[in-house]
Computed example of a mutant assay.
Amino acid sequence: MRVRLILPGLLAATALTLVGCGAEKTVSSSGAAQKTNPTASGSSAPAQAGAGTAAVPAALRFTGTTVDGKPFDASTLAGKPTVLWFWAPWCPKCRAQAAETAKVAADNAGKANVLGVAGLDKNAAMKDFVSRTGTENFPHLSDEAGDVWKRFEVTEQSRYVILDKDGETVYEGVLPAGEGLAEKVAGLTG
């Protein structure tokens, strides 16, 4: 209950004080367990994505709604490296990252996943951002309540969390204008 009282204040303070700045951090596989909440969707046992597919790691056991209003199940991302791009529609640094993030998504289609996680605003603004930035080639969650942001302990916009094919966090940080994103993804798909 205490988290519910503190988190809205933290998100509001973050929105007012941070405009996409922060330090990058490479996280070891032991750190990944700290960054995700394996019981957030109710089970700590490994879930199965389906017959013949990869087991769903704890990091990818969440659901949401896309900015277009469609249901989204992150378990569909299992088995491939995944880039989670946390952005806000009013953020100039996020806007600067959009072109490179869309290029990485297009260049790695079928080899890696890219998922935008929009927050800190209303869905209409998020949908407009996707349209204006040309990032329609990959899905974007409308995370108005900040549930996915909380799950990954993201406290600032313009942040990438990169997971390997096993769902372990291998990178977390800011990549100005998306610089270095392609190389990080290539290191996981190559």
Rank of each mutant, 00 (worst) to 15 (best):
V130M: 09
A177F: 09
G79T: 08
K35R: 15
K165F: 04
A102Y: 04
T17S: 10
D166W: 06
Q34M: 10
V56G: 08
W90P: 00
V148N: 02
T17N: 10
E183C: 00
D147H: 07
P81N: 08
G22Q: 05
D107I: 00
A23K: 15
G116F: 03
P46W: 11
V130K: 02
V148M: 03
A55L: 14
L120N: 07
G69A: 10
A58T: 03
F72C: 02
L84G: 04
P89L: 06
E153V: 09
E168G: 01
S43N: 12
P71R: 12
L5R: 15
V104G: 00
G187E: 00
K25Y: 09
S41F: 14
D147P: 01
T155I: 11
I6T: 12
K80D: 02
T36S: 13
L5H: 15
A124T: 11
S29H: 13
V104S: 01
K103A: 13
T155E: 07
D121T: 06
G22F: 06
P89R: 02
A47K: 14
S142Y: 03
A106W: 04
F152W: 11
C91T: 06
A105F: 02
A32F: 11
F86M: 05
G64I: 01
A78D: 06
G116P: 05
A33T: 12
K25L: 13
L7V: 14
F129M: 03
A145P: 04
G52K: 09
P81W: 01
K35F: 15
D147K: 10
R159H: 10
T133M: 07
A177M: 13
N137S: 11
V174W: 02
S158P: 06
P81F: 01
K70I: 09
Q34K: 12
A58P: 02
N37T: 12
A55E: 14
V67S: 01
F62L: 11
N137L: 09
G190D: 00
K122N: 11
Y171Q: 05
F129H: 02
L60V: 12
I162V: 12
G180P: 00
E100V: 09
A23W: 13
W87C: 04
N108T: 09
A13H: 09
K80N: 03
L77A: 04
S30W: 12
P81R: 01
V174M: 07
W85P: 00
N123P: 07
F86E: 06
T36C: 10
L11K: 14
